[in-house]
Amino acid sequence: MSTEASETNIPVRDPRLARPAFMLRFRRPGPALIAGASLGCLLIGLLFVAVQVRAIFSAQLQQEYIGLVLEAVDRAEGARDSAAALRGAPAVSAEKPTSDPEAYPRARHDLSERLATLDALVSASPAPAPPFSKAALAPDAPFDTASQSLDAAASYWRAQREEVSDAMRNRISRVADTLILLSAIVFGVLVTALGMYAKHNRLLAGRSHEFEHAALHDAMTGLPNRRRLFAALEATAKSAGRIAVLYIDLDGFKRVNDTQGHRIGDEFLIAVSRRFRQSVRTGDVVARIGGDEFAVLVSRFESDSELAAIAQRLIACVAQTDQQMALGLVRASIGIATFPDRVDDYWRLVAAADETMYEVKRNGKDGFAFASASS
């Protein structure tokens, strides 16, 4: 009792859960997933490019503003050099001293105005920037104080110009790389789409061929059916001089189905169909008309004796199959009709061979006969 209870309570483990992760079946992405992922990558890439382009334009405006500031710096440095020369201090660009006592005050006033203009530009900067010292802007400010403030401003804004230029170059490089990547994605999507289109066309062509083959062939034996036989008959009659149809009926086959079962009967039909194909020439057509009836379309034969040899081989195929399966029941009756000597209309070849086959059956079966010229 306890043993049964313990066995009942043992949980049954799903065998799929015991599989390692690497053994799980990998599902290949479908076209919709690939297209969605590619579209997402394109949208992200375009958004990134748009952001970078906007940043580039902003940096370009910032660079233009820095250029204006540096122009003001250059003018202020020129005024400082002139004042320094008049003051007797070393100047960046030496000028001849003047004996005018008002020259230095005018140069100093000009420097103060240049510094005031520079301060106004710096104060109007769209980006935060270190302001000028108010003590350096006063007209009576010490020369050294004003000069140091100018040097500090010049150093800062020249460094800003280099930094903005480097940032612009990096952004342009990233935009170029992104555009190359997007082009590769677009090219990959196009190649993938063309590949899928070609694969789809191949699948459609393969299915169309399968449908056409199924419509023109017998499903069990693989032989051409009546429709395929008449199509081949029309094509052969237009290209060949003489053609013939051998109509075959399996004598005693109904007893095989009745006594041995339909499975044995189907095996017999498949086996005898294989032997029929092997016994005729490559250009001849062996077709299953239906049930236990077959037909062979022969083209380009020389004489009736050649057709008689083919008929004998077909009869032998049936007898060999019957012997191999140890049935002792099945034989063959064959009617032969030829165009244009015996039948003047090739569309009546099959019917004439069929009528002749029934004459063979009425005369004892297991043989062949030729249709009369009046058929």
Rank of each mutant, 00 (worst) to 15 (best):
R80S: 14
D81A: 14
L68Q: 15
E77N: 11
R75F: 13
A79Q: 11
D81R: 03
L61V: 01
A85F: 02
D110P: 03
P105H: 03
D100R: 03
L111T: 03
G78K: 01
P105V: 07
E102D: 12
E102N: 08
I66R: 04
L61R: 13
G67L: 02
E102C: 04
A84I: 02
E71D: 13
F57M: 05
S99W: 07
A94T: 13
P97M: 06
T98C: 00
K96W: 12
Q60P: 04
R106V: 02
A76M: 04
D110V: 13
R87L: 08
G88S: 06
T98K: 00
G67I: 03
S99D: 11
G78V: 08
A94P: 12
D110T: 12
G67K: 01
T98G: 04
I66C: 15
V92F: 12
A85N: 11
A85E: 05
S93A: 15
S93D: 14
D74G: 07
G78M: 09
I66K: 00
S112Y: 00
R87G: 06
P90L: 11
I66M: 03
Y104H: 01
A72F: 10
V69T: 01
D74M: 10
F57W: 05
R80Q: 15
Q63F: 14
E95Y: 09
P101Y: 02
V73T: 12
A107W: 11
A91S: 15
K96T: 15
F57G: 06
K96P: 02
G88V: 09
R80T: 08
G88R: 02
V69I: 15
A72M: 03
R106N: 15
S93P: 06
P101E: 01
